[in-house]
Design a protein around this nucleic acid. Structure first.
Lengths: 215, 215
DNA sequence: ATGTTTTAATTAAACGTTTGTTTAACTTTG
DNA sequence: CAAAGTTAAACAAACGTTTAATTAAAACAT
């Protein structure tokens, strides 16, 4: 219970600012002094609370992974859906998860590219495995019911799923940067893009899974 | 003609090492001294030849963009294919391009995430636009011939295309890291993954484009 | 071809900044 | 009064870059 109240207000403030700066400018291009300035705390507070810059990044990761793990559990415990509904729900979960936590995923995608070991590597690897298991479960369910093809590739599908969502956001960001529109319009376009992505991902996956043609 | 021989041997040596280190360890985590050591040149040579670390990165980008642009032109000038063959060829081109130049694309994906302006931003934005145009052209061709649906989304498709390929490679890397296998086995698995990706991407896209069901 | 001059390439050392982190003094809180 | 929180200052290390000196290569005139 008290385990949950792990971080006090100041710590959360530091972590929130750190996440934003890490995601927007990169971990290495963000100095502890940058974080301290924006979070309006002394530079020494980061070492005091988190030990080091590395550990701060780790804390940010752990924080979000907790949330993500519980989201996975929720979807895993859902039953009584049709095979296509299950796929649809998984896509919804991924799109929502990535849309709601854009900053974190931008950071994760960036840092994941250069990790070779350590706690962050292990966390990301674990998440990749869980992603795959989730997709696998839904696919096997549809295959058991005889509505999905038997020659689909789960590794491929989980790559498409996460890769498409991330790329869609990255492309949208590039398109909107430097465009002279209000923040409101920007958010509207982003939202439209997300909904289009959601709809078409579902259609594409169902088409792929149920495609009757020979290869 | 002489314009082509832009870089001498030493410059190319520096650029090759820089690309590898930037891609594997990140731009910021790679020092000029690291590059100089591995390229077996003096640290001052980087400034001497490229002006700065920033400009070296820019040179690496320009170098690869030249190649990529010419690959695009090749595919754009191909004719007399069926609609599905055109899509198939585009997928082949993207998969080959990303597989052959893995290091560069790892670097680009990473750095693209934090760019807001400047020459690199512009180059990447241009490439995203060209990607989209290529997909658009193939899609419209198929629609004109009446074999593709009219309600497909080109922005979505180009996101899926590039995002899936990159994510597939990233996931494969995570899976293979720390596995106690020979370099040969590693390359074999990588190759298998790439071919599976190619096959299934084609099948999925064709299924998405020709799916007869209502939405 | 030769010796001379000019340009380019290369080097070790130094420069000024910025970095993450620590210290030691001070303030607030329980 | 003891513990936790907070601060400004200091620290050493690493960074990108520049300097000034030296060597190699090229261009040139004789």
């Amino acid at each position: 219970m008290t385990e949950m109240v792990q971080y006090n207000e100041k710590q959360q403030q530091i972590m929130a600012i750190a996440l934003r700066l890490f995601a927007e400018n990169g971990y290495d291009k963000t100095s502890i002094r940058d974080i301290a300035r924006e979070a309006e705390v002394n530079v020494a507070m980061v070492s005091y609370y988190f030990g080091s810059k590395d550990k701060l990044l780790e804390a940010v990761f752990i924080n979000h992974f907790k949330f993500i793990r519980s989201a996975f559990k929720t979807i895993l415990n859902q039953r009584n859906d049709s095979a296509t509904e299950k796929v649809s729900k998984i896509i919804d979960m991924f799109v929502d998860m990535l849309a709601d936590r854009q900053l974190f995923h931008r950071l994760m995608i960036r840092e994941s590219g250069i990790l070779k070991q350590g706690p962050l590597f292990d966390m990301i690897k674990e998440m990749k495995t869980v992603n795959r298991r989730l997709v696998e479960k839904a696919v096997k369910n549809g295959q058991r019911l005889g509505v999905f093809r038997t020659d689909v590739d789960v590794f491929f599908m989980s790559s498409v799923l996460i890769g498409s969502v991330h790329q869609n956001m990255a492309n949208t960001r590039y398109e909107l940067e430097h465009r002279n529109i209000t923040e409101e319009q920007r958010e509207t376009i982003k939202h439209e893009r997300t909904e289009t992505l959601r709809t078409h991902l579902k259609r594409m996956f169902i088409a792929y899974l149920t495609d009757p043609s020979n290869v």
